[in-house]
Amino acid sequence: MAITEREAQHLERTRALPGERVPDVIEFRGVSKRYDSGDTGLEQATFSIKRGEFVFLVGQTGSGKSTIMRLLIKELDPTAGIIRVAGRDLRDINSRKVPYYRRNLGVVFQDFKLLPNRTVHDNVAYALQVTGGGRKDIRAKVPDILRLTGLSTKLHNFPDQLSGGEQQRVSVARAFVNHPPLLLADEPTGNLDPETSIGIMQLLYRINRTGTTVVVATHDDQMVDRMRRRVIELSGGRVVRDEHQGRYAGRGDETTAEFGALMRGEPAPAPRRLTEPGDLFDDAFQDES
């Protein structure tokens, strides 16, 4: 079964429960983090992110964006407060269970964090091997995800033979190959030029359209302002702005091309409606060029 079909079905399932109370994907309640050095990472942060949202975390360096990310992947533990992911208190996850918890997250970093000794294909396959995925599984999923991210021709290249944008695509592919319900991206475009950044953001948007919740930390607030998505702004470890809907409320149903245009600051192309949700992917694919 192709990814597109699977994801479309998944999308249908999640949409079929409009009235039901689904636990928030991420819930922070009065979370503080103080580092041993005495620095404050986060101060009484409270917010929640619903399933399927596309959220930006903005703020200057040192404002606490990365702290939130590191708390979410349980690299750090908070000094106070409660973090829930999909209704589950992170304090209940002991260090033995952390690897299994992390398999439900896709994580993308500014510095890509690819395995330098493995080809593109093997880098993505590693995420499946970790979960015990066999050869069959890898053969079924990896080529698909690489096609989705536009890397089909770079299968056997090593990371140092790729451009920054391509490397970041590999890391997105790796993050998404398990189809995690939540994808975290910490400054995914920090090392990339503006046009490549837009490509990466489009890719993340496309992943969001499949129903995956996407949280992007960035310091590029100009880009964020243009995108009309939910923005959580941090300063000195505090949440200073949380524009839920209002002027940032995106329609949430732009095509990827429209999304890209938004990011470039161009007038949006004429909206096109698609008949099948499954076509979203193929459509998304075409505007790769």
């Binding site: 992947i73 690897p99 299994y100 918890y101 992390r102 398999r103 997250l105 994580v107 964090k113 690819l114 395995l115 330098p116 000794n117 590693y126 995420a127 970790v130 979960t131 790796r174």
Partner: peptide
């Protein structure tokens, strides 16, 4: 060590 770090972040168990 960076490689090991990446493996951990992808969700590999220690023994893996």
């Amino acid at each position: 060590r960076r490689e090991v770090e990446v493996m951990k972040l992808v969700g590999a168990t220690d023994w893996f």
